[in-house]
Nucleic acid binder design. Structure first.
Lengths: 345, 345
DNA sequence: AATCGTTGCTTTATCGCTCATTTAAAGATT
DNA sequence: AATCTTTAAATGAGCGATAAAGCAACGATT
């Protein structure tokens, strides 16, 4: 039971007051060098370590930040967290992780728990089902910095780091058009339109068509489940079209994977017959035998930026609420699945 | 600035002492129902919330656990963390995440930081380069429960949840033999033998050969880099063998992916010419057009078990150190890449 | 010699909560 | 009626660190 030494132990040993020890350790100007050295030596000798909890209680700052994501084991969120950690750890911050599993109730619980734990800020991606804004207002009421990553709410006083989903979708669609496609379907999930990102992707797609004088055809918008099976069903529909599409822009990599499987199973070639591009740049897309093009969401960078925005917010606690909204440009990863003209990786 | 209410605020309002408020809120037996109700109502009215920091300082327990992994954005570790979170969150624990990036110095820093933060326990996967045991002994000296996941050190007093790598390797090799292979190469990383798991996999492979009266051939052990490129190089070597192998057991999915690409590029068929199986069950293995067989490491379950072991440890703080070593049986995921006889998914 | 300013430390109070101990009040016992 | 129990609340201390204010000692100033 090597019970930790406190500043009191040091004080007693040196016959000085605890406050002096505290100042000596903090390199306070009003301390003599003699005492500083003496205290530091004794601290080392006793194996003293600052109790962060006491400091946190006293100062009201825990040096801890809460991060809430739908699920940790989704690559995208894992990378975001890594970005946050990479940025904040060197500055002495700890990161508390919470998951919502896309459940609004858990989201509320998580936020309350984090606030109780006195975190210095919260970075979060909202659930697909978040309806109630009030819990987020509570965060702001407490003057706790709130930064949304990727999935955001529009809330005065809250910052955000998001992807320009419109642009990503626009570029992906434009890329397909450049490859010679002129009948492009779009796979999406209408049910998630509240999250905003799917809506933006749909709009980017629509705009790209418009700018290229390709008529918009509502039948080409396929509303499916966001998984491989949904993609397979979409693949069937696509194969059954009288006027078969020659391109697919999917708002998710999993949906496009299903569609690809279905299309190939029916003897069509990708990208020759149908060129496809997904969204998210899931790790598996580049590992495939025929690598899948996708829109990269720069997760790592989003995490880093969110961390930086957080740091900006707390530079001056007296400052009126700073609100900062960063929009990241996505990066197209052109691979075989959409390279009719020039194959690439 | 809706500054949080404390028990003193409640006490003042009701003209009772703070201690009574504390007891009332904690449902202490020596409190009258009248007071309890009164206090609870006032607490609600003032928007009181317990300050966990103060509680932690007072009680010496932070209700926080530290998790240190090489990298968060690796699927395997993400799943472990998810398992831990799923298990501990409902019991009121928070999880602080740290990364080592496989750097021993960062590992030491992380541990020190977590101990300063007064975590109630540490769950970790050591780096590939960990040499020094003393930092882990420090954890135990402080009576902080220490649980290793997957990558462990043998340390008296520390618990562990690991995979039976030997068994996984044995089963994978046996499976290839069952499929008719009798000249099986093994891809490994000799440099990582200190981590233990690669060594165990090699031994499982060796034992399976022995039990099936297949002579061990040291030339069939290929020591390569643990990535796709390493796998490609291994693939070349395999193709150049005079007596070409008909099976590959790889201790990593990335290595086998490279090997597969190389082999297919040379016109050979998988599994017909060469049957292959990897290790880790990375997500991409099942998404491939020709899904890759692999040994699943049950990451989620490992995380959950680690959390449970932690909870076991702290049931009775007075108890002598409990040491618990759980070894999980891996699960073979048989897919196309190794299914010569009966195709499966 | 008396006063002033520095320097460097001590004292005291506080962050919010809880535990052990004490006190007070009411009821039970003879 | 006087004492003993029981019960509920008050008191005070302390977890570990720090900030503000107070004070002693020294040398410098006039």
């Amino acid at each position: 039971m090597s019970d930790k030494a406190t500043i009191y132990d040091i004080a007693k040993k040196l016959n000085i007051s605890a406050a002096t020890v505290s100042r000596a350790l903090n390199d306070h100007p009003k301390t003599s060098n003699k005492t500083k050295i003496l205290v530091q030596e004794t601290a080392l000798e006793l194996g003293y370590e600052q109790n962060k909890l006491a400091l946190a209680l006293k100062s009201g700052r825990s040096n801890t930040i809460g991060v809430i994501v739908p699920r940790i084991d989704i690559n995208f969120f894992g990378s975001i967290i890594r970005g946050i950690e990479d940025e904040l750890y060197p500055r002495g911050y700890h990161i508390i992780i919470c998951q919502t599993h896309d459940n609004e109730q858990k989201e509320i619980q998580n936020i309350n728990a984090l606030l109780n734990a006195q975190v210095d800020g919260i970075i979060t991606s909202i659930t697909k089902n978040t309806k109630d804004v009030s819990i987020f207002e509570r965060i702001l009421d407490k003057n706790t910095p709130l930064i949304f990553v990727d999935r955001k709410l529009n809330l005065k006083g809250a910052s955000s780091v998001t992807l320009d989903d419109f642009k990503g979708a626009y570029q992906a669609t434009q890329h397909l058009i450049n490859q010679g496609c002129n009948r492009i379907t779009h796979l999406t999930v209408i049910g998630y339109q509240s999250v905003g990102i799917y809506k933006d992707r749909l709009e980017g797609y629509t705009q790209a068509l418009k700018d290229n004088d390709i008529p918009f055809d509502a039948d080409l918008i396929l509303d499916i489940e966001n998984d491989i099976n949904g993609g397979k069903k979409a693949g069937q529909k696509i194969l059954n079209f009288k006027d078969r599409p020659d391109g697919i822009f999917s708002s998710s990599d999993f949906m496009i994977l299903g569609a690809i499987k279905e299309i190939k199973a029916n003897g069509l070639k990708i990208p020759e017959d149908i060129a496809v591009i997904g969204f998210s740049n899931e790790p598996f897309t580049k590992f495939m035998e025929n690598p899948i093009s996708s829109v990269d969401q720069c997760a790592l960078e989003m995490g880093k930026l969110a961390a930086k925005v957080f740091l900006d917010q707390i530079i001056d606690p007296k400052l009126l609420k700073v609100e900062k909204n960063v929009i990241l440009a996505p990066k197209l990863k052109i691979r075989q699945s959409s390279s009719k003209k020039t194959p690439a990786n």
